[in-house]
């Protein structure tokens, strides 16, 4: 029997005033399978979403979803053609600046770090910890009406990359069954994966479960 846990419909996460979408998963709509997790396990698991381990899981998945290729591959430039065409196209000499730029292997993250070292106000003060919750980033939430308005009216200089990022959503979060994509009402007590019911839970246990604890 898999270790399962029904997630309580959390009090206090009702949608904020005026929000149109309150698509909470039907938390207790399904009969409760027996839990063999015991009290200790249950407490441990109900905090699972806020653990650093869970946050690492999420971060690693997000960085996978941002990749250009599934595997890291090096794709070299095609070999230089010889003869007239190649020489018509490429200059024989480049400036020192250009040579330096072409040889640079810096990634975007490197450039961003340089920028923030030079100009600390561009840095987001938001800590990227799991406990961060919905705490607002004060950097970009100064209400507009306190900014300079009439005289030389403007929205100020560019915010910089880190401070321009969206604040977290105010909506309650949703979870989905990893097997079929329906609401993820249950959570695997071993690895934290979500599933919708007994059938998908069984498939998960047999084929997918990556024991986490």
């Amino acid at each position: 029997m898999p270790t399962v846990e029904v997630l309580p419909s959390k009090p206090g996460v009702s949608a904020g005033a005026g929000w149109a979408y309150t698509t909470l998963p039907p938390a207790n709509a399904v009969s409760v399978p027996a839990s063999t997790g015991g009290r200790g396990a249950r407490n441990r698991h109900s905090n699972f979403e806020n653990t650093a381990a869970r946050q690492r899981q999420i971060n690693s998945r997000i960085s996978d979803l941002e990749k250009d290729n599934y595997r890291d591959v090096h794709i070299p430039l095609p070999k230089k053609e010889s003869g007239a065409r190649a020489s018509a196209r490429s200059k024989t000499t480049s400036t020192q600046n250009v040579r330096r730029i072409l040889l640079s292997q810096k990634t975007f993250v490197n450039h961003l770090a340089d920028e923030e070292a030079l100009n600390p106000t561009f840095r987001s003060r938001r800590a990227s910890t799991a406990e961060e919750g919905d705490e607002m980033d004060l950097d970009n939430t100064t209400p507009a009406d306190e900014c300079a308005l009439e005289d030389g009216e403007s929205g100020g200089p560019p915010l910089g990359y880190a401070r321009a990022v969206s604040r977290p959503s105010r909506r309650p979060s949703r979870t989905f069954c990893e097997i079929c994509g329906y609401w993820g009402t249950y959570r695997c007590g071993k690895c934290g994966a979500r599933y919708c019911g007994l059938e998908c839970g069984g498939v998960h246990q047999e084929t997918r479960c990556q024991k986490f604890f």
Partner: peptide
């Protein structure tokens, strides 16, 4: 519309 569906702590286009 809901980046949080994959755990990304950002708001969707309309909230933004």
């Amino acid at each position: 519309f809901n980046p949080a569906d994959v755990g990304l702590k950002q708001a969707g286009v309309v909230e933004c």
